[in-house]
Design a protein around this nucleic acid. Structure first.
Length: 293
DNA sequence: TCCTTATGTACAA
DNA sequence: TGTACCTAAGGAC
C-alpha cells in the first residue's frame, strides 16, 4: 500500500526499532547480498523519506574504500508491489523473496518485492531529492514550487498530481480523493486551476496524509459522510479506509448518488464523480474521453 | 490451480 | 504508448 504516507510511516517505524544501534543486515534472496555484507553490523544512524522514497542511513566509517566512501544510505522504493513487514525476535526463517532483512536484539524487518533497494552515497541521495517535487509530509516544504509548474501546464490536474517531479508522495488514491474533496474535474488543465484551489488542495493533502501516517491507511471521507453518519453500510475492502471515489466505479456517489465513473489515464485507473466534480473549463476531454462506466 | 489485479516507475520506440 | 519489473491476495474454476 505504498503512497507517501506509507513511506513516512515506515521511516518512523524503522527509526523507532533500529536507530542508534548495530543492525544485522542480510539479503536472503541474494539480490542485495554484496551491499548487505558491507552494511552488516553497522549502526543505523538515521532515516529519511521523500515522497515514495525511503532512506535508511548507516554509519559510514570504514566502508570498502574502493567501492564506497560512506556514510551510506539504503535507498528503498516499494513500487507497486513492495512490502515491508516487522516482527519481534526471534525472526522466523526468511522466505526466498526477502530482499533485505534487518535484525537487532528485539526486532526484525523484512523487505519484499521492492522496485529499488540499493546502497547509495550522500551525493546520490541528494540527486534523488533534487528530482522530486515538494512533499506535503516533509516539514518546511510548501506547495509554491508545485504551483509554478501546475499553473503553467497544459497537462491535466489528474496527471500533474501523480507526477513526482511536481508533487512527491501522491498516488492513485490520494489523487482521486483530493480532487473529489475539492470538486475538481480530473481533466481540468493545470493552467486552469486557480491559486486558491491549489492552496486548498496542498493544505488538504498535508492533513489527509498526516492522518494517513498516524493510522497507517488512507481515509478521506468527512465526518458527515461517514457510514454511521449517513446510515450506509461501512466499506468492506482490502485497503480498509473510507473513501469517496477510489475503486468505487459504478457505485453511488456518497453525496449526490450519481454512479462513480472510471477511465484509464496513463495506465492507471482514474475515478471521479461527474456531478460533484464538474469542470469549470476544459470539459471536452472528459465528455469525449475514453470513459468506461 | 490459474487468472486478474494492485496505493509505481523507468525505459524504448 | 507499450512493456518490463517486482510479489501476493482474491476470485473464478
Amino acid at each position: 500500500m505504498p503512497e507517501g504516507h506509507t513511506i513516512h510511516r515506515l521511516a518512523a517505524d524503522h527509526h523507532e526499532r533500529f536507530a542508534g544501534g548495530p543492525v544485522r543486515v542480510s539479503s536472503p534472496q541474494g539480490k542485495f547480498s554484496d551491499s548487505a555484507a558491507l552494511l552488516d553490523g553497522r549502526t543505523l544512524t538515521g532515516v529519511d523519506a521523500h515522497g515514495k522514497h525511503l532512506f535508511l542511513g548507516f554509519d559510514g566509517h570504514d566502508f570498502d574504500r574502493h567501492s564506497f566512501d560512506g556514510p551510506g544510505w539504503v535507498h528503498i522504493h516499494l513500487g507497486l508491489f513492495g512490502k515491508l513487514g516487522f516482527g519481534t525476535t526471534p525472526a522466523p526463517p526468511p522466505t526466498d523473496t526477502v530482499r533485505l532483512r534487518l535484525v537487532n536484539d528485539a526486532h526484525y524487518a523484512d523487505l519484499r518485492g521492492p522496485t529499488t533497494c540499493a546502497l547509495i552515497t550522500e551525493p546520490e541521495k541528494r540527486a534523488i531529492h533534487d528530482r522530486l517535487g515538494p512533499d506535503p509530509l516533509r516539514t518546511g516544504e510548501d506547495g509554491e514550487r508545485a504551483w509554478q509548474r501546475i499553473s503553467r501546464s497544459r497537462v491535466t490536474v489528474a496527471a500533474l498530481l501523480m507526477d513526482q517531479k511536481v508533487v512527491a508522495g501522491i498516488g492513485n488514491v490520494y489523487r482521486a480523493e483530493v480532487l473529489f474533496r475539492h470538486g475538481i474535474d480530473p481533466y481540468r488543465l493545470g493552467k486552469d486551476l486557480t491559486r486558491q484551489e491549489w492552496d486548498a488542495i496542498w493544505s488538504d493533502l498535508g492533513e489527509l496524509m498526516r492522518e494517513g501516517v498516524r493510522n497507517n491507511r488512507i481515509d478521506t471521507v468527512r465526518p458527515e459522510h461517514l457510514p454511521e453518519a449517513m446510515g450506509r453500510p461501512p466499506r468492506v475492502d482490502d485497503h480498509g479506509g473510507e473513501v469517496y471515489v477510489y475503486r468505487r466505479a459504478r457505485q453511488a456517489c456518497h453525496i449526490c448518488g450519481t454512479g462513480i465513473r472510471t477511465a484509464d489515464l496513463a495506465a492507471r485507473n482514474l475515478f471521479w464523480c461527474p456531478v460533484c466534480q464538474k469542470g469549470t473549463s476544459s470539459r471536452a476531454a472528459a465528455a469525449s474521453g475514453p470513459s468506461r462506466d
